[in-house]
Nucleic acid binder design. Structure first.
Lengths: 338, 338
DNA sequence: ACAGGTCTTGTTATCGATAACATAAACGGG
DNA sequence: CCCGTTTATGTTATCGATAACAAGACCTGT
């Protein structure tokens, strides 16, 4: 195999091509002015040497990393993955690369992560949610780069926002059920305040129920977020055991809603005949399960795409003021609710 | 707001704390020898100035980035997400951060991605699969860092391997069905060769069927990978239309298997009564659907964890020779098959 | 009390690309 | 044909942390 000789630098390439290192540097940028013949000779020399461009040096000298830092609660969540995909696609054309970190639904972990990410000197930072530790908030405020909070509409944003109101979305779902004559409605969600979006959804449920003058105490705590199918099934079991006259249940996500649905199937409880079920997030499962699941689509990919577009505008100096882009989630009535 | 004054450097912190920049540098590393009093004064000065450590400079001078580059086909896949999680957790303790990129199941995109990643000078690189373009392979071979191929057992590995045989896993599934007296077995998978793991699974299916002297032509092409629930459902529809006497079907993943299951439910085809269904990947859906799905668990998180452990060993010089860690997937017979 | 060791801190040069400035060559319109 | 402009390339200094080397202060046991 290849001997572990030192990796070639631009200077080596320059020497072989008979030009100055600066010209090599220019040849590696797409817009720079280098004659075709020179560029070709340089690329050939680089190829012969097996030269690989060293961003670490470029990053330091140019004070540009082409990183956009992104924090999400979990990589194992199709909604956040979609947002990252939208972001990634929108940024790729400009050579911006995503530096991804997960917080595990924990704002203290988020604080540590933000510090790690800022050390890498990203061009911008995208965080999920609007709730942060005071220190994390301070770091973001002083970072000197565009900050975008997503998946939420924080009362006092740090910088830009691309999000939606989780509470309002669930309110729409409650209204949907009430309009169909369902009044004994329950909510299945995580029991801790770790998942702030889940907490907002529960709060939206309670507020909406009270607005309608309905009992807002049918709250089933399904465990520590992220709650998934299994937890949703268990929670539905408890709901059916303790409050068997419940007519409808809103779950914090489609995953828990599907779990709840399967529990009904195992017990022979008809959906939507005896109980209506709704989820959140428009995961693929809800579109294909039997019955299909009533849900809310918050357009996660769109959040990512709009965030990417916003970042480009800000970096181009076309957007000086902090922007708040509000996404309107869409309620999707399906077979699991009447 | 804060004026956009230049960000403070170590030199600024050093001046304020009354020490040399080198001492500040040491104070920021955990193992370095700095007296408690000095470190405290330095951290206080850093805090007062709002200093944020600049890795770009550190990366260049120390020739260490603390990055581990990772390529996966898609971020939107719970199996790969699990591998990334295992990796991330195993590397975090050592301060190694993951630099993640997605190939979209395309080896040419992988080539571009690998080049981008190597420019960032990672300490090691983890790629999914063992099939690469010649140039990608060359870049990996010459990168001068540990290379780990995962989720596969390539015939001629570039460096280290942490994987399993997709073909052998599916063979076990075929054997499982045959042992139960099922012989008219179909396979639902992607129609392109983009997803090499899917292709290996189909090849394993064909080989196993032939070993048993059975008809290996019941192959349903479900579309361009990644194929998901919808494609699985459509493919099952076509299978039931064209080969209604099929007794069992093996799907390339649990997602398509679940889609197939729902299609049966919509058509009133009993599972496993009239047809048995198996998936791949042990996604949560298969453990909770009604009926639960027979599947194969390839331990994706374990792949990540073992890869992380291997990287640490190699970086510590405790593992000089290329290692091949073979994971043994487990067949999980469940309700969807007899 | 002193040689040899450890602990703490400082000095200098450097990692590799590129921003900023400079300049020679080619071009182009009147 | 000349001068202003564009194009192609070179020179020098620099981004900010830290490796490598050096050295004084502080022990510690005999």
């Amino acid at each position: 195999m290849t001997l572990p000789r030192k990796a070639p630098t631009m200077a080596d390439v320059a020497r072989l091509a008979g030009v100055s290192p600066m010209t090599v540097s220019r040849a590696f940028k797409h817009d720079a002015s280098v004659s075709d013949a020179t560029r070709e000779a340089i690329l050939k020399a680089a190829d012969d040497l097996g030269y690989v461009f060293d961003s670490t040096a470029s990053n330091l000298r140019s004070q540009r990393t082409n990183f956009v830092a992104v924090t999400i609660p979990s990589i194992n969540n199709a909604n956040f993955a979609d947002t990252v995909r939208g972001l990634s696609e929108g940024l790729k054309a400009r050579g911006l690369q995503i530096l991804l970190g997960t917080t595990d639904y924990d704002i203290f972990e988020e604080e540590r992560l933000i510090e790690q990410l800022l050390r890498r000197r990203p061009e911008a930072i995208v965080v999920t949610g609007g709730q942060h530790t005071p220190r994390a908030r301070r770091m973001l405020e002083n970072a000197g780069i565009p900050v975008i909070e997503t998946w939420d509409l924080p009362p006092s944003p740090i910088g830009h926002v691309v999000g939606f109101s989780n509470a309002a979305a669930v309110r729409a779902m409650v209204d949907h059920f009430v309009a169909r004559g369902l009044t004994r409605i329950a909510f299945i969600g995580g029991d801790a305040d770790r998942d702030t979006r889940g907490t907002d959804r529960r709060a939206g449920f309670i507020a909406a129920m009270q607005t309608h003058g309905l009992d807002a105490t049918r709250l089933i705590a399904a465990g520590v977020p992220p709650i998934s199918m299994r937890e949703g099934a268990d929670a539905m079991g408890r709901l059916l055991d303790t409050l068997p006259d419940t007519e409808a249940v809103i779950c914090v996500s489609d995953l828990s809603a599907f779990g709840a649905l399967t529990e009904c199937q195992r017990r022979g409880v008809e959906v939507p005949g005896r109980i209506s079920i709704a989820g959140f997030g428009d995961y693929e499962i809800g579109a294909i399960s039997v019955p299909t699941l009533t849900t809310i689509n918050p357009f996660p990919r769109e959040i990512g795409a709009q965030t990417a577009a916003l970042i480009l505008k800000v970096l181009d100096g076309e957007q000086a003021e902090p922007a708040t882009l509000s996404i309107l989630p869409r309620l999707l009535p399906r077979q699991s609710s009447r």
